[in-house]
Amino acid sequence: MESLDLHQISVRELNQYLHQELPGKGITRLEILNPDGVHSIAAGMNVAVDIDIMGHGGYYLGGMNKYANITVHGSVGWGVAENMMSGSVRVKGFASESAGASGHGGTLIIEGDASLRCGISMKGIDIVVGGDIGNLSGFMGQAGRMVVCGNAGDGLGDSLYEAVIYVRGTVKSLGADARFEPMGDEDYAAVAELLARAGFSHDPREFKRVASAKSLYNWNADANQEY
């Protein structure tokens, strides 16, 4: 298996290799050593390859990913898999703020906790978090699903559009226009499928559905800016 060491090459050299030389080489799996919290590791991946990152990543790891399946054997900084299009990113440790921000597709799995603003402005990505998520998660989520096996912080799902959030634990507070809704057969199926994808063995019946009440969809002159 090919091994790339960030003690030997810069992240720019690494990403130039991943973007320009890797496609067409027929390599299906590679590992990146000594990430040491460097930013933008394996951002913009446009080739189907399994990447193992052996340590803690920095900001924007796997951002804009299209085809790669990336596993981080550690924790990551802000904006992991931000604006991901497809493929997958799995974080074995915790993820800092804005995990999966504005993601259009693919699957982001965080085995530990995710910090504040997880899934902010998500646009179709699926996010599964093994632990808790921080305040203001799911803010303005437009499409996609987020499954949280632990607890959610304050302001969950503030100003949601069509994204749906499933929470197994407690929700400290809901954001403006977010509400609990009854779970339907489709919800149980969706949670089961996402848990299976993540390899978590919880019972889907333990999850609650949070979605938009849609009261912000149209301007209400009588609301007096109070939501």
Binding site: D36, G37, V38, H39, H56, G58, S75, G77
Partner: peptide
């Protein structure tokens, strides 16, 4: 501020 300062 970031892990990269703790890595060494």
């Amino acid at each position: 501020s970031e892990f990269r300062s703790l890595a060494k």
